[in-house]
Design a protein around this nucleic acid. Structure first.
Lengths: 235, 235
DNA sequence: CGGCGCTGAATTGTCAACCATTGTAGCCAA
DNA sequence: TTGGCTACAATGGTTGACAATTCAGCGCCG
């Protein structure tokens, strides 16, 4: 299961494209929130860090921009994306439309080996949560959702979900509200149960509610995001 | 209404990005089927055609590849995408999942001016169809669907639909089966009626059936696509 | 005669140096 | 402090070069 990265490498594409490690590294750093939203990504600096030319860096930045994980401003450079609350809500609304359907399909199509894979994944999630590895937990959670999409056998929708999930990780890192962090694990567990039983309707409902829960765990009140009132409003 | 191009230019991005005209030109040529699927897109040739450097061409090709309108093969170059029947079916299945929901939303939210815009668009479609401008008709049809998505006010889903539609145009051009080409116009007309009446359920159903009709108008029998059996299978 | 590896042209992937443009910071004066 | 001028830094793009790879032709050998 190649679970992350909306720009994936297919069989023909696994050659030594120098930009891919840069893209993957930055992507991982952004999604895991080690690079704060708004951070500048200077070409020269990245070029020296990765020991490649600026041309390669630009390709990587363009790829990140396609995934909406970075923002390219003309003559100013690249910055880590900073999705606003409107975008955040829409991303989750899109997921709430797509993923329940995929969960239902997965429940109908899952083979035993795939369910075993999901259970293994649950363990890893559980572990990361208890070890307090927050960013790891977020990424593992995303991979769980991608795993379900892959089981459903809809590669186009899986790609879309992959894209939405990378943005979700960023959004969660941005707008997470310290509430009941524990609900996660239970929801995923119940989903696996439903999928194993082949109960499509149940899986669909569980996914829908899980996403609604996630959304309600975010602080998306229309009020101003940060004390960046002036600079943000006027721009 | 900026109705086409999944990689759009936001306000800050309207500066002289030299790659955009190349991207737009190629995109238009591919979607309108003036560039046949599988056609090679050599960097040097494009560079001389558009009078830009290879770097710019590569940026444009990367953008096309992200939209899945071109395929980048390492050390071999870029080729116009050739979606197979599996992908084609999945693209329409994805649309059948997303667009009915957007149609319902549009029916609830449409303002008179937007409905007027849709009607104007219907006229253009009608015109193109009667004039026999096939590729124009395909693109106008796509723009109609995008227009509905925009009315629904879900920008993320609109972006996704935009992406799916560009691929759909390519797919239709590839797998269209000469049957009843006329149904199109009626379906769009009925959709506008439902949206104007604010009947969300009706709009959703109409969209669903419209997409099912479109899919059934394609030749997606599992048999081999083209006599390209050898070169395609072995690679 | 057919299959084999080889060679070489063509194309891509990458780099480095360079220019033009634009945004930014600093400085000075009113 | 504000306004404007200047110099600097970063980006967008170009050019030219070069290594790596692909592929088509070609001769060799069985």
């Amino acid at each position: 299961m190649n679970m992350f990265g909306s720009t994936t490498l297919d069989a023909t594409n696994k050659a030594a494209m120098r930009w891919y490690p840069v893209y993957a590294g930055l992507r991982e750093a952004i999604v895991s929130h080690r690079l704060a939203p708004g951070t500048k990504l200077p070409e020269d600096e990245l070029a020296s860090i990765y020991s490649v030319s600026r041309a390669v860096i630009r390709a990587a930045l363009q790829a990140l921009s396609h995934d909406r994980l970075a923002r390219l401003e003309p003559n100013r450079g690249a910055f880590v994306a900073q999705p606003n609350k409107q975008e955040a809500r829409e991303v989750f609304e899109a997921r709430a439309l797509i993923e329940p359907k995929l969960a239902a399909l997965a429940a109908e199509m899952a083979k035993p080996a795939e369910i075993e894979q999901l259970r293994l994944h649950l363990d890893k999630e559980h572990e990361a949560l208890h070890a307090g590895h927050d960013s790891d937990a977020i990424m593992l959670s995303a991979q769980f959702h991608i795993g379900i999409a892959e089981i459903a056998g809809q590669s186009i929708l899986t790609g879309i979900v992959r894209d939405l999930l990378s943005r979700s990780s960023l959004i969660i890192a941005l707008y997470w509200r310290r509430r009941d962090t524990i609900c996660e694990s239970h929801a995923h567990h119940a989903l696996v149960e439903a999928i194993q039983k082949g109960d499509a309707q149940d899986a669909s409902n569980l996914m829908k509610h899980h996403l609604d829960d996630l959304l309600s765990g975010l602080d998306l009140t229309p009020g101003k995001n940060k004390p960046e009132s002036l600079s943000d409003i006027l721009r």
